[in-house]
Amino acid sequence: MAMIDYPDDVIAAQAMGYWTDLAARAIMGALRGQLAVERLTQPHWWTLNHVSGSPDSWTRTTLAQRLGEFAEEGTDFGAVFDDLADRGWLRVGGSDGTLALTDEGEAGRLRAHERNAKAHRQMREGVPTTDYVATVNVLRRMVANLDGRTDLP
């Protein structure tokens, strides 16, 4: 989609909250739309990635605590874990109840990864990496100025 060019002083007067909210809605909508093709939500995606990255190290409780900081209020991680287990994608193993992906779960994670990559490619089309990095760092600085957390997720 083509963009209208505006003078810098006009852009500088724009409300950051408006643009960050609009960007978040568009980005999250694209990602959620891609995940929905696999009947996944973002909490499903986060679960698949965390368990894949550290198999047999997360329990339902520790993973729900970790992911809770990213989730919308009221997210039921128990239901997410149960759904993935019911699909045969997630298994609970060992006496300590650690989580691991099954082969089907890893295959699903890889499909979802490619779908997310498609949304990311679309989002970053025409945006040089240096501009993307600068944008993220500007947003991190604004968050830091407001006493927010700026470490990477």
Rank of each mutant, 00 (worst) to 15 (best):
H120A: 11
P7H: 11
M123R: 07
H44K: 02
V51W: 07
E104M: 07
G17E: 12
M3I: 06
G33A: 05
V136A: 10
K118L: 13
M3K: 15
I27G: 00
G93H: 09
L139F: 08
H44Q: 01
D131T: 11
R141V: 07
Y18S: 12
F70N: 05
H50K: 15
S57M: 10
E72C: 01
D147M: 10
N116K: 08
E106M: 09
E38Y: 14
M28H: 14
V10T: 11
T130Y: 09
E125P: 00
S57C: 06
R124E: 00
L84I: 11
L63V: 04
A26H: 08
R91L: 12
A23P: 01
H113I: 00
T61D: 13
M123D: 02
M28P: 01
D56T: 04
M1S: 13
P128W: 00
D86Y: 03
R111D: 11
N137W: 08
M1E: 05
S54P: 00
R32V: 05
L22S: 13
N49R: 15
R91D: 11
W58K: 01
Y18H: 15
A144M: 02
W89K: 01
D103S: 14
A119I: 01
E72H: 04
G88T: 08
R39H: 10
D147C: 06
A64M: 03
K118E: 12
M28V: 15
S52C: 07
G88E: 06
R115N: 04
A144K: 12
D103Q: 10
D82I: 00
G33S: 10
D83S: 03
T59Y: 03
W46Q: 14
S57Y: 07
T47N: 03
A100K: 08
R140C: 08
M142N: 11
A15C: 10
L67H: 04
T129D: 03
G105S: 03
N116E: 10
A79F: 05
A26I: 08
G17R: 08
Y6D: 05
G53T: 03
P43E: 08
G17Q: 09
A13K: 11
Y18D: 09
R39V: 13
R121V: 06
E73K: 10
W89P: 01
F81M: 06
A79E: 14
R140L: 14
G108N: 06
T130P: 04
E69D: 07
F70Y: 15
L40N: 02
I27Q: 00
F77H: 10
T135S: 13
W58F: 12
S52V: 06
V136P: 02
P128F: 02
L48T: 08
A2C: 06
V127S: 02
M142I: 10
E125R: 05
S54Q: 14
R109M: 06
D21E: 13
R87P: 02
T20F: 09
L40A: 03
H44L: 00
T75S: 04
G74Q: 05
L31N: 04
N116T: 07
D131M: 13
Y132M: 08
F77G: 02
D147K: 12
L63H: 06
E69Q: 15
T129H: 07
